[in-house]
C-alpha cells in the first residue's frame, strides 16, 4: 500500500519503505522548504515511511517583496 504525502491541497503517493528524504526527492520537494509530520508529530528526514500511513508536510517559506531590494522602494525612508 502506498504512503500518502499531503502538502496544502495536493496529495502525493509514494511507495512505503523509503526514507522521508527520498520520498521528498521523488516528489520533487526541497527538504529545506518543509517540515514533515506524522500523526501531527514532527519527524526527521531519515524516518522510514510505512505502509498506509499519512504524512503531512508543512510549508515553511514565507515573505513578500516588501524588503528593501532594488526597484521596489524609493530612496527616501
Amino acid at each position: 500500500m502506498p504512503v500518502s504525502i499531503a502538502l496544502r491541497d495536493i496529495v502525493y503517493e509514494v511507495r512505503a519503505g523509503m526514507t522521508a528524504r527520498d520520498a521528498l526527492k521523488k516528489i520533487d520537494i526541497l527538504p529545506e522548504s518543509v517540515l514533515i509530520t506524522r500523526n501531527g508529530e514532527l519527524i526527521t528526514e531519515d524516518e522510514i515511511l510505512k505502509e498506509d500511513e499519512q504524512i503531512r508536510l508543512i510549508a515553511v517559506i514565507s515573505g513578500g517583496s516588501d524588503r528593501k531590494t532594488p526597484g521596489q522602494v524609493g530612496k527616501n525612508p
Binding site: 522548504s33 517559506i61 514565507s62 515573505g63 513578500g64 517583496s65 524588503r67 531590494t69
Partner: peptide
C-alpha cells in the same frame, strides 16, 4: 506574495 522575487530567491 505569490510570484515575489524574495520567494524565488529563497
Amino acid at each position: 506574495a505569490a510570484g515575489a522575487k524574495s520567494i524565488y530567491y529563497k
